[in-house]
């Protein structure tokens, strides 16, 4: 391995990136924008009331009035046909007809809000004597336990994934279609020197990228940072390396941009769904739980949350670090072996 060559490849790769304003925006600007928008969207608001419909009829207004007793329900009275359509389209979570004494409730329990709406409606329709004694409710809004606290580490993981898959995979295939790789491989440069240099040139960017998102979270929404900064840096580097190795592997053979885009999406979609970015993946069971553990993004996100939300140090994340490094190394070795230059 000639380090002079690795350094030269890394330098030209990094420069190529910095000199493309659009690439800089989509790498830095867009993820930040997403973090800001999502942060505001999920930042400690009271939940929206659930829409329910009451079918128009003689007792409809009385029934609607009873339901309006709950501030968590938004009640509207609709003609039968309109009410059916509203339920079918998911505009309302629940449909009621009849009178308050013996109403008929209609919902599709497989929709996320349907059961909650049913419970709320049932509670409002009970006679006052049967109601449960008042329970004091505390809203969890302490830093470290809110959704935004949970989301920010996930967004960092998501960015590492994107940087590896698109930043590496897509650009390698682009260089192949540009016939630049052919020119490079007829020099004394070795394949592994090129791939490592390319990885470093793009990989160096993940550190500032992750840092900026973390800083935004900490400064803007008070997301805590309780663990070790060193552990965070290591996770970003090693996690980034794992996804970049995967990017190299996906880019090893394709000859067209369409092929690499398809392969990248194929790999990315399960990770988005199972990697625990936007919703928790800790409650799956059966084979799905196995799949969750097989997805590298799961381990990146879990460890990042340990480091940011809990006082985890380097020793606490050694296992994920080891797993991710091994995964990245394996992908990289296979990519060097299978890489197509022409």
């Amino acid at each position: 391995m000639n380090l002079r060559i690795v350094r030269a490849i890394a330098a030209v790769t990094l420069r190529e990136f910095w000199r493309s304003p659009d690439a800089v925006f989509w790498t830095y600007g867009f993820p930040l924008l997403m973090a800001v928008v999502l942060g505001y969207a999920f930042h400690g608001q009271a939940p929206e009331p659930l829409p329910v419909a009451v079918v128009d009829g003689p007792a409809a207004e009385a029934l609607a009035e009873r339901l309006r007793g709950s501030e968590r329900l938004r009640v509207e009275v609709l003609p039968a046909e309109a009410a059916d359509r509203a339920l079918a389209r998911g505009r309302v979570a629940l449909l009621l007809r009849g009178d308050a004494a013996a109403p008929v409730l209609r919902n599709d329990p497989s929709r996320p809000d349907a059961e909650l709406a049913r419970l709320l409606a049932e509670r409002e329709l009970r006679p006052p004597a049967e109601r449960a004694p008042p329970i004091a409710v505390e809203v969890e809004d302490r830093p470290g336990s809110r959704y935004i606290d949970w989301l920010i580490p996930g967004l960092i993981g998501l960015n590492l994934l994107g940087a590896g898959m698109w930043g590496i995979g897509f650009n390698l295939v682009h260089l192949r279609t540009q016939r630049l790789l052919r020119r490079l491989i007829v020099t004394p440069m070795r394949p592994r020197e090129f791939l490592l240099g390319f990885l470093l040139g793009r990989g160096i960017l993940v550190v500032p990228e992750a840092t900026v998102i973390a800083l935004f979270g900490v400064l803007l929404w008070g997301v805590p940072f309780r663990g070790s900064v060193l552990a965070f840096a290591l996770l970003v580097l090693v996690g980034g390396f794992a996804f970049m190795g995967l990017g190299c592997l996906l880019a090893a053979r394709p000859r067209t941009i369409e092929a690499i885009a398809g392969l990248t999406n194929l790999c990315q979609l399960p990770m988005w769904l199972l990697g625990g970015v936007f919703f928790s993946n800790e409650r799956f069971d059966g084979w799905l739980a196995g799949l969750v553990e097989a997805v590298p993004l799961t381990h990146v996100n879990r460890a990042l949350r340990d480091v940011m939300l809990e006082p985890a140090g380097v020793a606490d994340v050694l296992l994920p670090l080891g797993l991710l490094a091994a995964f990245g190394g394996l992908c990289f070795a296979l990519a060097v072996r299978w890489f197509r230059w022409t």
Binding site: V12, R15, E16, S20, Q178, R179, L180, R182, R183, V186
Partner: peptide
């Protein structure tokens, strides 16, 4: 020393 048919280099370099 090799000069390929229509070889390309890094555009921004």
């Amino acid at each position: 020393g090799v000069c390929l048919q229509e070889s390309k280099f890094h555009e921004k370099a």
